[in-house]
Design a protein around this nucleic acid. Structure first.
Lengths: 122, 122
DNA sequence: CGGTATCCTGCTGGATACTG
DNA sequence: CAGTATCCAGCAGGATACCG
């Protein structure tokens, strides 16, 4: 017999939460996915634009990640047939679902900088 | 002359935000740091406890990460001299500063699971 | 229990050059 | 502009065995 949802016991399920956490880490793992998502969500649409908006990224990496992200439904690639080599990328709803994570991370990063700066002055 | 902070223009600074994002990715990079932080913040204190709470992690990895995290001020290691091989770990305030990120990621992971399940039924 | 030592593999990602 | 091709290194991380 299937257990019915018990709303009283364990409002938090640690095992389930680690799982969820590990899934997420798997999906957004690596150095570039989140910065790229962030860039496109910020309105950058052209390859070069995105490239310039992310310090340190190479074309190869950007190219690879964009391809994978398109496959995974994170972005749409719009290729203008009239202008060869005019491509635009746009974020899907799915892509935007990472907003909370990205915001939390930006926030943490800013505070971290402030903290380090403090430390140097001490 | 130094630019004074202009509260009107650019309440958001994209360049600064990518930086912050990349800093954060650097700090919590890899498969294990976040799950370990999460585990310790959830009250797991013993090595084995932490190990058991994180599916897939090996002793070697856990050991290495814990050592690094202690060096970086994320956790305190309490070694009981009376009981050799009785060690406890506890989270520092710094460690807890990752809570928002972790929560956002757990949340995303859960929704992701639900989404995938939906897809399979369709 | 709480680790360390050793060995090994793969994959991420960098450098560089070329293309339609 | 928007990529692709090739080549290569480093290191994260897995397997396994051993230790006080």
């Amino acid at each position: 017999m299937a257990k019915t949802k018990n709303t009283l016991s364990s409002p938090r399920n640690p095992a389930e939460e680690v799982q969820a956490l590990q899934d997420t880490i798997y999906v957004i793992g690596g150095k570039w996915k989140l910065p790229i998502i962030n860039s496109i969500c910020n309105g950058n649409r052209r390859f070069r634009e995105i490239e310039r908006s992310i310090p340190g990224i190479t074309r190869r990496m950007l190219s690879r990640e964009l391809k994978e992200m398109e496959l995974n439904g994170l972005i749409r690639r719009l290729d203008d047939p009239d202008f060869p080599a005019k491509v635009e990328y746009e974020a899907t709803t799915y892509c935007k679902s990472f907003a909370d994570i990205i915001l939390a991370m930006i926030d943490w990063g800013k505070k971290h900088r402030a903290r380090v700066k403090q430390q140097l002055r001490a």
